[in-house]
Design a binder for these strands. Structure first.
Lengths: 216, 216
DNA sequence: TCTTTTATGATAGTTTTACTTTTATTTTTA
DNA sequence: TAAAAATAAAAGTAAAACTATCATAAAAGA
């Protein structure tokens, strides 16, 4: 985790881990705009000032969660792809890993629940970069996990077809759409081809989209 | 324009049009989070209360602009596609219309500048639906212009290939990515394959992506 | 034309958000 | 066991996000 994201490392103390754990749940419950440090402080029975000792503001906390999610996804993928040679299989695994909700209880961090992080990404992730601070944040490497995973995926696409010219754009399209299309299915179904959140249908669409592009 | 978006129609008065005109410019300058009705009121020499008589809150104003942009884009496309029969040509025109910054001065509204609306969409459009109010907003038809354009595009795709199964998802992917990829080129170039904002390169990518999918 | 409605301007006030500061108390570590 | 570090408690500030009131000006209707 990039140290510029926090003032004191939240994973290193009981209070810090409480902040991480309940902050994520409350953001998911209320939405990022309605979330405040005051509400979080009340929930975990500390004070606003207590939270400000860990995070400069709520936007940095959001970026923390989003980064955690993408780092964790890259970590998961590095295992899954480890002893697979066939790039087609690799890409299919990537798509499924991006789309599928994390299964059950494979807890990697005490504080942060994968399932909650997965939901947060669907609703709030783009707010992490859609800010006038993008340039500064980017200079401080605060989007590194997202960009790293994008490069991993782009490289896998090039393994499959080394002559494909738009691997990075296709990789970021995949990363964005694996969550946005799920959001559409759930909330604005006219924008998708399914009336309910259906990961299987989304995987079929993305498989078709990505391999058509790479095969063309 | 959906009447539920405003309390008093801003196009019908001098003050209303001033709000629309300068509101858009200030949002683009400061970013939506930093934008307030107070700042807008100072700019146009009225009071906060004056603006609240037109819009319930700043989020409704944002949705107003986004809707204006998508309605206007559908209107532009209805002309462009009017006497073209070849669906391939139609899709290419759609892609170019979505990607290219609006040319010069073809002003359709005194109050709202197309160029400013185009910029707003790149930075702020997804914040219009990434809110806990999506369901309510959607019930009130507040996303109709976006959804209508999506259906127009999806139908054109089906004209090109009636057997394609994911026309709505592909259309919304196109609508989202025509702006998101431009944002990436400008701000997070690692996520794209270009170091600067290059509409031509983006068009090439989207042409390839969409036609590969439809041809496959 | 006179009256009534409607829009705007001016002013003030409330609650919540997003912080900062200070001091006392506890916990950790050297 | 003393010093350092982290937390709790309390208070305060500036700005954001509204709401309310009243006077005046402009437009519209009878």
């Amino acid at each position: 985790m990039n140290e510029k994201l926090f003032l004191r490392d939240p994973q290193e103390s009981v209070l810090g881990r409480k902040i991480l754990h309940h902050g994520l749940i409350i953001i998911n419950k209320l939405g990022f705009e309605q979330f405040t440090f005051k509400k979080l402080a009340e929930e975990i029975e500390t004070t606003e000032a207590g939270i400000y000792r860990y995070f400069e503001n709520k936007h940095r906390l959001l970026v923390y969660y989003v980064n955690w999610y993408w780092s964790y996804t890259e970590y998961k993928l590095s295992f899954l792809l480890n002893n697979i040679d066939d790039p087609e299989k690799k890409i299919k695994l990537i798509i499924r890993t991006l789309v599928m909700p994390p299964a059950g209880k494979s807890v990697i961090s005490d504080a942060i629940s994968e399932m909650e992080a997965y939901q947060l990404v669907r609703w709030e992730a783009s707010k992490s970069y859609l800010t006038r601070n993008v340039a500064d944040y980017n200079k401080s490497k605060l989007f590194k996990p997202y960009k790293d995973l994008c490069v991993v995926i782009a490289d896998t696409m090039l393994e499959y077809n080394s002559r494909y010219k738009y691997s990075h754009s296709l990789a970021s399209t995949l990363m964005e759409m694996s969550h946005a299309q799920m959001f559409f299915m759930e909330n604005l179904p006219t924008l998708s081809d399914s009336q309910k959140a259906d990961p299987t249908k989304l995987i079929a669409y993305l498989d078709h989209l990505i391999f058509s592009a790479l095969d063309h």
